[in-house]
């Protein structure tokens, strides 16, 4: 691939992902609206279909307020750090056989690295805002993300053991010959841990404590407005898409499906990712929020030991069979 075709791939990838992000917000509002017996957005366009575009245009033209006591430089670059870290991890996602920008052998590791970098953006935003709510939101978010990153990293070791690779395409190919073409059943404990850690990593309900609006206003993004706020928002939704993709790739068999769809190879991948996204939204409409001590207790006392036990059992079973 030459640099030019690569750039073309990147532009297509980014545009598709950003449109996905925009319409993920639409689906979220629509689905939650329906679950609460409301209509959701209806005004802008047919059934509110242009609402995400209107939101984007609006936040572009909104005033960019930078508090006078904020750390000017850090306050300005924190959303960019978040966005860049999240967007660049899209490079290693295989959407279908061969539909991947960078098919590297350390794909999974790269994604973990990038999601850890995004935590920098959050904590810098919290610190540089020089506001109590932002500060505590940033601290909480940091502690939560790093705690659940361990649980998530350990929950995927079972998958690595079975696939024998960190390359995401290889992991999908290795699942082809397991039960139903996916690792969901042999790795059900791993999936359980992964799913909970995924919710906590993306700061979603029931673990959305960094932006618990009843106590912290809006957490680390309290002082942000306009496009900079929209960037945190985009980073968060790209993060959701990322985690849904990793779950699809590692546990649900990636692009494999009951039958091949001829004209659109990533069909099953997209379907499974949307299944995850729907679960995210469904959980948000259903569950109340966790308390902070319960959250940390759950991560450290339940998920990490469970993930370790899963590794030992997987390795043991593999030694017995193989």
């Amino acid at each position: 691939m030459t640099v030019l075709t690569m750039l073309l791939h990147i532009v297509v990838l980014v545009v598709v992902v950003l449109l996905h992000v925009a319409y993920a917000t639409y689906f979220e509002r629509k689905i939650i609206g329906r679950m609460q017996v409301r209509m959701g957005p209806m005004r802008v366009g047919w059934h509110g279909l242009l609402q995400p575009i209107a939101d984007g245009v609006k936040s572009f033209f909104k005033e960019d307020i930078i508090p006078e006591r904020a750390d000017q430089t850090l306050f300005r670059i924190a959303p960019v750090i978040c966005l860049v870290a999240m967007m660049s991890s899209l490079a290693v996602l295989p959407f279908a056989e061969g539909w991947v920008l960078a098919d590297i052998d350390i794909g999974l590791l790269f994604i973990f690295g990038m999601s850890a970098l995004a935590a920098y953006g959050v904590v810098l935003a919290g610190w540089s805002s020089n506001s109590k709510y932002s500060f505590f939101g940033g601290m909480r978010s940091m502690a939560q993300v790093i705690s659940y990153e361990i649980a998530m990293g350990l929950s995927l070791v079972g998958v690595m053991l079975m696939a024998g690779s960190l390359n995401l395409s290889e992991i999908v190919r290795a699942q082809g010959d397991s039960l139903f073409g996916m690792y969901l059943l042999p790795q059900c404990v791993g999936f359980f841990v992964f799913f909970i850690a995924m919710l906590a990593e993306t700061n979603r309900v029931p673990f959305d404590l960094p932006e618990a609006e009843t106590e912290l206003v809006s957490g680390y993004s309290t002082e942000y407005s306009g496009m900079r706020y929209a960037m945190f928002f985009m980073a968060e939704y790209i993060g959701m898409l990322m985690m849904a993709s990793i779950g699809t790739i590692c546990f649900l068999g990636g692009w494999h499906g009951p039958f091949a769809v001829p004209f659109f190879p990533p069909f099953w991948f997209v379907l499974k990712v949307y299944l995850f996204m729907f679960a995210f939204i469904w959980i948000r409409a259903t569950l109340p929020r966790y308390r902070y001590d319960q959250l940390m207790g759950l991560g450290w006392k339940l998920l990490i030991p469970l993930a370790l036990a899963n590794i030992v059992v997987t390795a043991g079973v593999k030694a017995l069979i193989g």
């Binding site: 691939m1 640099v3 690569m6 750039l7 791939h9 990147i10 532009v11 990838l13 980014v14 966005l83 860049v84 967007m87 660049s88 899209l90 490079a91 290693v92 920008l101 960078a102 590297i104 790269f110």
Partner: peptide, 9 residues
């Protein structure tokens, strides 16, 4: 590819 995506984003 990763490098280009980093710069692009």
């Amino acid at each position: 590819g990763i490098f280009l995506l980093l710069i692009f984003s």
